[in-house]
């Protein structure tokens, strides 16, 4: 055992990325900072050969493959990297887990524009009363479909990435489009 353990660069990045993800999901609507822009640090912090991943963004695919994760069809994926959403197909195909195993519900990572676009009012765990955020560049009807699909505790958990910003929305968050 060495005298003073020093984290490697990869360890430092993953630790920091996870701090951002955990805080983002614990405080829906709050914007957290990833160690670098884009999804790469999220992939590095969460994925390995135990995961089944659906990746719609060809640019991310090499990063996903490097983790050893198994590339899967959308309904079988526990992690979904959708890139920028063109339509709602991805949301329709997500695994929602079961009442017995809600943890099987997928984690969806989507690119969005944070700070402009439609205004949303969020309530639920992690939010003292309500919080308002603006999220742009998601397809029409996204929030409606999310609401229809989530059958709490079944559902999916969402991370919206904009550069090095990340905003989390667990299935427990209710979203009202204002």
């Amino acid at each position: 055992m060495t005298a003073i353990p020093i984290p490697s660069e990869a360890e430092r990045r993953s630790n920091q990325a996870f701090d951002a993800l955990l805080t983002a999901l614990s405080r829906p609507g709050s914007i957290q900072r990833l160690p670098q822009p884009g999804e790469a640090s999220i992939i590095e912090a969460l994925l390995d050969r135990e995961c089944r991943v659906f990746c719609a963004d060809p640019l991310l695919m090499p990063i996903v493959l490097a983790t050893g994760a198994i590339v899967a069809d959308l309904p079988a994926a526990d992690h979904v990297f959708a890139g920028a959403l063109q339509d709602l197909d991805v949301v329709n195909g997500l695994d929602l887990g079961s009442h017995l195993y809600p943890d099987d519900g997928a984690t969806l990572v989507v690119r969005a524009v944070l700070g402009q676009g439609p205004k949303l009012r969020l309530t639920g765990p992690g939010i003292e009363t309500t919080v308002e955020v603006t999220v742009g560049s998601l397809p029409e009807g996204f929030w409606d479909l999310r609401r229809q699909r989530i059958r709490y505790p079944m559902g999916f958990d969402l991370f919206l990435v904009d550069g090095d910003w990340v905003l989390g929305m667990p299935r427990s968050t209710q979203v009202e489009v204002l």
Binding site: P5, I6, P7, S8, A10, E11, S14, F18, L21, L22, L25, S26, A45, L46, L47, D48, R49, E50, C51, D78, P102, D103, G105, T107, P125, G126, Y152, P153, G155, D157, P170, R171, S172
Partner: peptide, 23 residues
């Protein structure tokens, strides 16, 4: 670093996120 290997940490991270998502 931190005793646990990277894959152990990743599994715990994934489960922590799910635990937060379904309090």
């Amino acid at each position: 670093y931190g005793f646990l290997d990277a894959s152990a940490k990743r599994e715990i991270r994934r489960k922590m996120l799910k635990a937060v998502a379904v309090p």
